[in-house]
Simulated assay, not measured.
Amino acid sequence: MFAIYGTSGLMYRGLAEDLRRVVPTLRSVRTRALEPEFDRPLPALETGTPPNAEHRGSAHVALSAYSQLQRAPVARRPLRNVADVMSRNPVTLSHDMTVRQGWWVLYQRGVGQAPVLGRNGLVIGLLSRAELMQPERLPTPDGHALVWQALMAQPLTQVMLSPVPAVSAEVELRRLALVLLDTGLQGLPVVDDEGRVEGFVTRSDILKAVVHDPPLDLWAG
């Protein structure tokens, strides 16, 4: 199930096919570099060691790799739903933050976007670093410092993307991918039936899932 939330609350709830007809026009945001975190980092090679020590180290690595192969394989299952790949305990922003405060949170937490929550704790918008960096939003390079200060002092609610689509955890990944392509967004907040944030899911989450162990089963059924 998909939904659309704005400053006035829930605006739509229904299927992806219907969402495509009611989603407002949203500016496409730019992609950011993917930094995958692999489960099995490659062992670092030591330098400057005597030949015999290097040989013993190589033998140890080979034996370790062989022992890994002898272990029972981990049970795998296809990844089908948003819940299988979403990030839990996501970064969220408050409606009463300024642009400067919201930008700083995104920077500190190393994320490209975060949902904005209203007074009741429900989603009312989405703040995206890529959206903030659109040329039409920024002062000219030779603009006065006061212009930049005024931009940073604005409330988040004036620059956030709103209304914003949201998705529930049980939605199939192929339907999520369809909505991401339609809206041009890099990610969506994951909400429960009451509209409270349970997680956040991005294109990067899907790509990381492709790289990791369990296979994606986007086209099942």
Results as ranks from 00 to 15, higher is better:
212 H>L: 06
177 A>Y: 09
27 R>T: 12
42 L>H: 06
21 R>C: 06
56 R>T: 14
181 L>C: 09
12 Y>N: 03
196 R>N: 14
77 R>I: 10
23 V>D: 02
89 N>I: 10
98 T>M: 10
213 D>T: 11
71 R>Q: 15
78 P>A: 05
202 T>Y: 05
65 A>K: 14
83 A>Q: 05
193 D>W: 03
28 S>I: 09
51 P>Y: 05
191 V>R: 08
106 L>F: 00
218 L>G: 08
93 L>K: 01
205 D>H: 13
22 V>M: 03
116 V>L: 06
122 L>V: 14
103 W>V: 03
16 A>I: 07
210 V>P: 05
174 R>F: 14
141 P>E: 05
145 A>K: 07
64 S>R: 12
171 V>L: 13
32 R>N: 12
34 L>H: 11
144 H>Y: 01
149 Q>I: 03
54 E>Q: 15
170 E>T: 14
140 T>Y: 00
180 L>W: 03
218 L>P: 06
9 G>S: 07
43 P>Q: 00
126 L>C: 01
178 L>A: 14
6 G>I: 11
220 A>L: 05
145 A>N: 03
184 G>M: 08
207 L>T: 05
195 G>W: 08
46 E>M: 04
34 L>W: 12
212 H>D: 01
64 S>P: 04
206 I>P: 04
198 E>M: 13
95 H>D: 07
196 R>P: 11
185 L>Q: 04
94 S>L: 02
10 L>F: 15
170 E>M: 04
213 D>E: 01
123 V>I: 10
197 V>D: 07
111 V>R: 02
163 P>M: 08
33 A>Q: 13
25 T>C: 04
6 G>A: 11
197 V>R: 04
199 G>M: 11
139 P>S: 03
181 L>N: 08
99 V>M: 06
1 M>F: 13
146 L>I: 09
207 L>A: 14
213 D>F: 00
195 G>T: 13
209 A>I: 08
64 S>E: 06
156 L>R: 03
203 R>N: 09
136 E>D: 09
50 P>G: 07
177 A>C: 13
174 R>L: 02
93 L>P: 01
178 L>F: 11
30 R>F: 05
129 R>I: 15
175 R>N: 12
69 L>P: 10
146 L>H: 08
33 A>R: 12
156 L>Y: 00
183 T>G: 01
170 E>W: 12
146 L>M: 02
55 H>Y: 11
173 L>A: 07
114 A>R: 02
128 S>A: 03
184 G>A: 04
131 E>A: 12
83 A>D: 13
17 E>Y: 07
86 M>Q: 13
80 R>S: 09
152 M>P: 06
92 T>N: 06
201 V>G: 10
195 G>L: 13
129 R>Y: 07
33 A>N: 05
182 D>K: 13
76 R>D: 14
96 D>A: 03
211 V>H: 09
68 Q>E: 15
83 A>H: 12
209 A>S: 03
148 W>T: 04
191 V>N: 09
111 V>Y: 01
17 E>L: 10
31 T>A: 15
105 V>G: 02
58 S>A: 15
205 D>K: 00
133 M>H: 13
184 G>H: 06
87 S>N: 02
216 L>P: 04
154 Q>N: 07
2 F>N: 04
216 L>K: 02
180 L>I: 10
26 L>C: 01
32 R>V: 15
189 P>Q: 10
114 A>K: 02
101 Q>T: 08
